[in-house]
Design a protein around this nucleic acid. Structure first.
Lengths: 330, 330
DNA sequence: CTGAAAGCGCTAACAG
DNA sequence: CTGTTAGCGCTTTCAG
């Protein structure tokens, strides 16, 4: 099974030319006499030679590869981003190397460090504290970050979470809801923005907000927090969740506790993951345009790599998606 | 922004030792006098030196990195596999580089080719025709393949799809269903096995099967095929889908056409994706133990890389998950 | 204990 | 058109 992988030297020898010639031929850097080209092509063909990208990268400093690091490949929001990024990268001849960091946040730095040296640029979705963000710049690679940064030192792509949450809340207020709850995930950088949007809107209408905090942005946590929220004295009549996953979990648990959605409580999520379509009732949500975020981030990265000028900050506008999980109380 | 990344030579010079010493120190290959070690550590620290993994890999031939190629990161079945594989890899100090091939099957070979030279081994989920499988072996890398192979030339991990489908069908027959339909996805290697399981069971009970074929293993296709299946003369009373995604789509479409599930038709999927829990009714399915498959594949790969002996073939047993989308007709 | 030197596989001037 | 000659940044004998 140990086929000796041929090197450029083997090929050169077999074809009776120099390694430089092979190199130039492979990369199309230069043309040669038909006789030589034919010979080279033939030898390469029968030896099954492929240039070693590592050696190639080491000298050119280019890998035609970009890294994309996400928090959880299991979350549809992130996989949509991946889809978008992938499409753009492929169109430009780049390969995307995906890394899932959530399994072990402690290893994130090591992971990114390792990845950064193997790619031409990085797109990062991270929960890293701002202090460590400095460190990212030290990687000395073109880099695009997801989310709003306090001091915008890195090129970023972000959704307008505050606005999305505000819009959703505004809608629910208009529908006549009075007792609001927000199921958040405070470990996320964006939780604050979303909760802020909800609060700001409620404040403007003189309404209160009860906040619940999940340990993970998952359906399971949504289920877990449900009984706490619904079985106290006077449950809320409108719930905005940090994301759709949590909303899905909540709805299931609420329904199995005997509550009707949206009759007893309106539920809304954020992300517009595709599975929100398949629940009963289907989930009202805020579309953050995940895929478009992936596209924008990859375009920005590729521009940076190519030395093209780019906007340092792209904000993607949210959009309300109204479905059956919210009702009119007027 | 252009920090000159320090090389081993810079460090050696600054520390007043040779590059060889630095190299050995970094890799812990050898110990040195406390004085020297302290000096080196200090210099490395303040220069922020990190060895270049490319150069390192080029010479050692090891990357401490493995590639995992999946058909669609958007499909929960695959992301579960990723989770499992990731966990094992990290536990062994390996980094997983994930690649999504479905966007462009035509580019799959190029993608794998590129990836293979950058990693110590590969785990591949592919729709590649058997003829091209040969080519994979030619990559000359430790490699684990998902699915049953005709001529088992590669180490593989597979679910027992035939058995799972048989079990599910058996259960539906026992429940008293008479008119069976199978919604397949013939482009997949596993479709045949699943359909075979269904057919074999039905044949044993003298029952017929109507087959529908989807263009993609997606919820959207499930929705699309629904009207065709349900609005003809005499619709089926039991449907087994190639996967849960298709089942989800079908259920939604059927319900919006006014059918009740499972009263009018029992629906079952395969994969046991988490979202099957959040539909109404929740989806009956066959758990293929995706995550366990990822674990098994990664263990097998790591064993191969380390030169440890391994079973060439691992079969993961399926398990029936009974939920509300199937009913008793007796 | 420490260093000199020979490359890994490939590209990039620079000659011819 | 084609070849020579330096390395890229690092590891690894092999001496000292």
């Amino acid at each position: 099974m140990k086929k000796n992988i041929p090197t450029i030297r083997d090929v050169a020898a077999a074809a009776g030319v120099s390694t430089a010639t092979i190199s130039k031929f492979i990369n199309g850097t230069q043309r040669f006499s038909p006789a030589v080209e034919a010979r080279i092509a033939e030898v390469i063909g029968q030896m099954g030679y492929r240039s070693n990208p590592l050696a190639q990268s080491m000298i050119t400093g280019k890998t035609k590869t970009v890294g994309l690091s996400v928090l959880d490949v299991t979350n549809p929001h992130f996989t949509s981003i991946v889809k978008g990024a992938n499409r753009v990268a492929q169109a430009h001849g780049y390969t995307v190397l995906l890394v899932d960091t959530e399994e072990n946040p402690g290893r994130e730095q090591a992971l990114l460090e390792a990845l950064s040296r193997r790619v031409d640029g990085l797109i990062i979705f991270s929960r890293m504290p701002d202090s460590e963000l400095e460190w990212l710049a030290g990687l000395d690679k073109p880099l695009v970050f997801f989310g709003r940064l306090p001091r915008m030192t890195l090129p970023t792509v972000a959704s307008d979470d505050h606005r999305g949450a505000y819009m959703m809340t505004r809608h629910l207020v208009t529908l006549g809801h009075k007792r609001f709850a927000y199921m958040g995930f405070s470990k996320s950088r964006r939780d604050e923005e979303r909760m802020g949007g909800v609060k700001e809107c409620l404040a403007a209408h003189g309404l209160e907000l009860t906040v619940y905090d999940a340990a993970a942005p998952s359906a399971q946590e949504g289920e877990r927090l449900c009984s706490e929220m619904m079985l106290g004295a006077g449950h809320p009549d409108a719930l905005v969740c940090y994301n759709d996953l949590m909303a899905l979990g909540f709805m299931k648990a609420a329904q199995s506790l005997g509550f009707r959605i949206p009759a007893d409580i309106s539920v809304a999520g954020v992300d517009n993951i595709v599975y929100g379509n398949y629940t009963s009732p289907p989930l009202t949500t805020v579309d953050l345009h995940s895929e478009r975020m992936g596209v924008a981030a990859m375009e920005k990265l590729l521009d940076t790599i190519a030395g093209r000028p780019t906007e340092p900050f792209t904000l993607i506008e949210p959009q309300l998606i109204l479905r059956g999980s919210t009702a009119n109380r007027n």
